[in-house]
Design a protein around this nucleic acid. Structure first.
Lengths: 312, 312
DNA sequence: TTGTAAGCGTTATCAT
DNA sequence: ATGATAACGCTTACAA
């Protein structure tokens, strides 16, 4: 592997000149430029990007932390980030964490080790305080409200309040909630909003992330019969689809037997006519990316829209 | 920013000793180890990972090239890759190309520049020959059949033949096909299989990738009336869902008015009872990752399964 | 067990 | 315009 010095020697110029040619700097005669280019070809020269990185102190790599790649929510946010990053010639390093703190730490350590120019958390398991500690090593953005770090988020409390109001107007009286985790800021906000609206813990179902989880919850609800909620606000469309499917299989009707309101408004909600809270996820990703280069604390709240369909 | 030399000086040891402490090497007295660790804390030392990279000549980064992150097909393959990579302490650099050759080239150039230890193409716009040229700079794996590069793929020709046989058995006589692109190895194989089965160009619909595309194609088909195919093999479940939705909206019935057989067997196919060809996508990703470290040419063909539902 | 010094391959500063 | 030379910060023979 020929390096810049080999080229310099072979072409009878200095390394500086070779570097100049490499970077299209001015102040290099056409004659030498051609000579350098020629010997590069002869010696099959390849620029070593790691050396550039070390010398410049920047990698042009942005880290993105998310729990699950294949969830529509996260893959759309990621998409938004990737789009902006690509426009600016940055690349994305992906950290799929499955909500394991250790995996999140790996990403933070790469920021600390200068392998990343910035880091975006689409969701997190570590505490905000833990994450904030790494802020001194480079820009960190959260897709969740934060008082100390740059962040882009939607108002989860308000979204639940809006959902409850919508359901009440449609005549539903006992409203339940499904959630993925039993901690996390967004989760807590949703729970708080539900309780403030006068509903109870017993109608909150945790561990609701996939279609199978939805089917499972549906079976629980069917056992409860009239002793359960008559409407459910659901983690995401996929879980809602699971509930929908299981109810249909058992000969139950949506929304007569159970009203469904889910989050994300993905294709499947559209197809099954499930009401859903739509978030501008691509925009969230794009905003997160932009926030990386804003030095002072900035929060961006994104609006949501409730799309009503047959399920409510 | 204190570096390894500063630490050495302050702790009264050599840089080698510091490096040894850093890497948990044996042969360093407990006394010095503690001294080093202590001064590291005092001087707030952070290891610079780029320097490590340059020195070692390996980055532990694997590049993944795919056209669209948010498509279930690709996000599942990516998931499989990420899982294996994470197990081995490698990280993923993501290249969302939107099938732009230039973007694919960026990834290849990073391999050439030693910023990547390997590269996986989940799909491609560049020719195999173009990609193969970069094989000299590091391992490259394709998720598509190739005679020269390591690859994991499914037999697209056979999948169409199987689909056609299935549809014929169910009584359908004129079978059409939807595709995303009008080139690409997988696409070509599908077209070839359809033609070999006795069907024609006129029933092939291109540009079918999203739900909206499906709706559009559905409208075209509705205009054709009885002058179109009575069954369709479809790019993916999302497109199929689009067709399904549009037909339902117009009061048409699936499969009476049109039989649908799609690819990928994602949630939405399950929910809408659409027959679908299932591929082991996670396994495909995992296999692709493993193939990176196999020096001699190896091909892995993955099986597919036709899941029959109400749409056929 | 410890240290010296030569890489790794660039970029950047400062003369000339 | 061109070049010497010092960073960048770590790893790793090789020597002691």
């Amino acid at each position: 592997m020929a390096n810049i010095r080999d080229i310099a020697k072979a072409a009878n110029v200095s390394v500086t000149t070779v570097s100049r040619v490499l970077n299209d700097h001015p102040y290099v005669s056409e004659e030498k430029r051609r000579a350098v280019l020629e010997t590069m070809k002869v010696l099959k020269y390849n620029k070593n990007l790691n050396a550039v990185t070390l010398s410049k102190g920047k990698t042009q790599i942005i880290g993105v932390v998310l729990p699950y790649i294949h969830q529509p929510f996260f893959s759309l946010v990621l998409n938004g980030i990737a789009r902006r990053a690509s426009e600016e010639g940055k690349t994305i390093m992906l950290f799929q964490t499955n909500y394991e703190e250790e995996k999140e730490r790996e990403a933070l350590e790469k920021l600390k080790g200068k392998q990343l120019d910035g880091l975006i958390f689409c969701s997190r398991a570590l505490s905000q305080a833990d994450i904030q500690m790494y802020g001194q090593h480079g820009p960190v953005v959260l897709c969740e409200e934060s008082e100390h770090m740059n962040c882009v988020y939607m108002n989860h409390y308000e979204s639940i309040v809006t959902g409850v109001r919508h359901l009440r107007r449609r005549g539903y009286e006992r409203i339940g909630l499904t959630l993925n985790r039993n901690s996390g800021r967004n989760t807590n906000e949703r729970v708080r909003a539900l309780k403030d609206s006068g509903f109870h813990d017993e109608d909150i179902f945790y561990g609701a992330l996939n279609m199978e989880d939805g089917e499972e919850i549906a079976r629980e609800l069917l056992l409860l019969g009239n002793d359960g909620p008559d409407a459910l606000i659901i983690t995401n469309d996929t879980v809602a689809a699971g509930i929908y499917n299981e109810f249909r299989r058992r000969g139950k009707k949506i929304p007569d037997d159970l009203a469904l309101l889910s989050y994300d408004n993905q294709h499947i909600a559209q197809s099954l006519e499930i009401s859903s809270v739509q978030l501008p996820l691509l925009e969230m990703g794009e905003a997160a990316y932009s926030l990386l280069s804003i030095p002072k604390h900035k929060k961006i709240e994104l609006p949501f829209t409730l799309i009503q369909r047959e399920s409510t």
